[in-house]
Amino acid sequence: MKGVFAHKFWVVVWPYIWMLVFFALPFGFILKISLAESMIAMPPYSDIWSWSDGHFTWLGSFDNYRFLLEDDLYYLAYFNSLRLAAVSTVLCLFVAYPMAYGISRMEEPYRSLFLLLVILPSWTSFLIRIYAWIGLLKTNGLVNHFFMSVGLVDEPLTMLHSDFAIYLGIVYGYLPFMILPIYANLMKLDHSLIEAGYDLGARPWKVFLTIILPLSMSGVVAGCFLVFIPAVGEFIIPELLGGPDTLMIGKVLWQEFFVNRDWPVASAIAVVMLTFLIIPIYFYRRLEMKQLGVGE
C-alpha cells in the first residue's frame, strides 16, 4: 500500500502546493498586515513583531479594527453591500429561473443554442458590459431619450449613479451565474415526476410549486451563493454605475488601498469582509461538493 500512497502523493501534491502558497497563505499575510500600522515607506506598513538579540517583541495592534468601528462609513459600507447584494440576488433569481426553465424544456439543438446565447455575453468583457449601461442610463442617455420622446416623462430620470443602477448592473452581470446551476438542476429532473404531478391532478402552477421548485432548490441555492458572495465585494459595478456616495465595501477597500495607500486598513476591511462571508462560502463549498458528487 505504501507504493499506492506514494503515487497518490505525487499526483496530488502540485495543485495542493500551488493553492496552499497562492490562495491560503495570502490570508495569513492579510491578517498580519491588518495588525500593522500604516507608514510612509516601501512597503507602506510597519512590522508586527521584531526579533533582536533573542528578544521577541510584539508590535501589532488592533487599531485598524477599532478605526473601522469608530467611523460609521465602514459600518454603512458593509451594511449597504450586504443589502444591495441580497436584493440583487433575489431579483436575479426571479429573472433567471424562468429563463433556465424555458431553456431546460427546449428540444435539441435549440436547447444548446439558447444556453450558448445566455452564456455568450459573459465571455465578452465584464467591464465592457457594465460600461455599456452608462450610455443607456445617463441623464442624456438613450433610455431617457426614448422615455421623453414617447412622452413617458417630462424630465430626464436620474438612473445612473443610483441604487437602481447597481441592482441593474449586478443582475445583468451575474445573470448567467444564476441561470447555469438552476438549468443544470432542472436538466437532472426526471420528467416523469412532472407528469406524475399532472396525472395526480395538480395544475401546472401547483406542479411547479410542489415538485419542480423543491427539486431544483439546490440549484437555486448554489446560484444565489454564486451571485451573492462575489456581489458583496463587487468593485466595478459600484465604481461605474454607482454614485460618489454609493458605499460598497469593495469600492471602499479599493480606495483605501489605491487612493489613501493605507494597506493595513484595507487589509482590516478585507478580514472583516471575509468573516462575514466565511459562512456562506462554507455552505457553498458543501453544496458544490455534493453537486459534483465528490465524496466527503
Binding site: 416523469s192 415526476l193 406524475a196 396525472d199 395526480l200
Partner: peptide
C-alpha cells in the same frame, strides 16, 4: 381534458415517486 382533470391515474415505469 388535460391530464390533471382526467379520472385516470398512471403507475410510471420509473415509478416517478417524488423523492422529496
Amino acid at each position: 381534458s388535460p391530464p390533471y382533470q382526467r379520472p385516470v391515474n398512471m403507475m410510471f415505469q420509473s415509478y416517478a415517486l417524488f423523492p422529496h
